[in-house]
Write a protein that binds this DNA or RNA. Structure first.
Lengths: 140, 140
DNA sequence: GTGTATTTGTTCGTATGTATT
DNA sequence: TAATACATACGAACAAATACA
């Protein structure tokens, strides 16, 4: 798994790390029970402070993506097993809120329901196609 | 147009103002050429500092939702007329990025393409239905 | 087993930028 | 403008776990 930090990007570094790990999980480059590098190792590779990586890991743990027990490293959680009802509900809520916000802005900009759904289909196809491809061609 | 500030909400106040004005434009409660209250008036109504409202207006201007010329107040822009090619492209890019991010997270959480699109349809229906209804039943 | 060195996540403090008054 | 509060990111030092001679 190779992460890349864009210092020109205005989004916080810990968020960039968090987003790319989520993307790696979605593409199944990271599978449940996979171990992530230590905060120091990853921080060294990325050229950032260990606290920045640590914050990204903590966020991912709070969101249910990672399991972290003491100093034994962080591993990828199995969402099917860790999914508590409230977490599933929270995730559904976040998805709905995000989609509504995007639809709202698209509408305010003069877009139509159909162009919004077309964009949603396009992105969904990309993401889930990559996910399917990753599970077969992955292994390096 | 009635705005409401939630001090318990962790999102910045200026962002809440910005989001609700965008929502009002989407629902067509605010129409092109409509005048917005002055920063002092709105700040007084909401009980916040005028700098906060001013920041929200500035963001909306930069995003193309508002026109602000000097001290003559802010008015709602007509996206059809103000839409420069680069702004249209930027808006499409923001929509695509947002949708891809949501799809990615849904995928990483074990969701499917179909459940994602179902959620998108649900939210789009709500937003665009409100928009259509707002243009006829608006006035309260 | 014991002691040391290394690696790990955590705690403290600091500097900078942003949000808001 | 000035001041306060919070978020981001960094650095030094700490304590728990591990490796190894």
């Amino acid at each position: 798994m190779i992460l890349h930090i864009d210092q020109m990007d205005q989004t916080p570094v810990y968020q960039q790390i968090r987003d790319q790990i989520v993307a790696a999980i979605a593409r199944e480059e990271l599978l449940p029970a996979d171990r992530l590098p230590s905060v120091r190792t990853l921080a060294g590779d990325l050229g950032v402070n260990l606290h920045t990586v640590n914050k990204a890991y903590a966020v991912l743990r709070d969101e249910g993506y990672l399991l972290m027990r003491g100093r034994s490293g962080a591993i990828v959680a199995d969402f099917g097993q860790v999914a508590t009802p409230e977490r599933v509900a929270a995730n559904a809520e976040r998805l709905a809120t995000g989609l509504r916000q995007l639809a709202l802005e698209h509408c305010a900009q003069g877009g139509t329901e159909e162009t919004f759904l077309e964009a949603a289909r396009t992105q969904a196809r990309r993401v889930f196609a990559d996910s399917a491809a990753g599970s077969s061609s992955e292994g390096a």
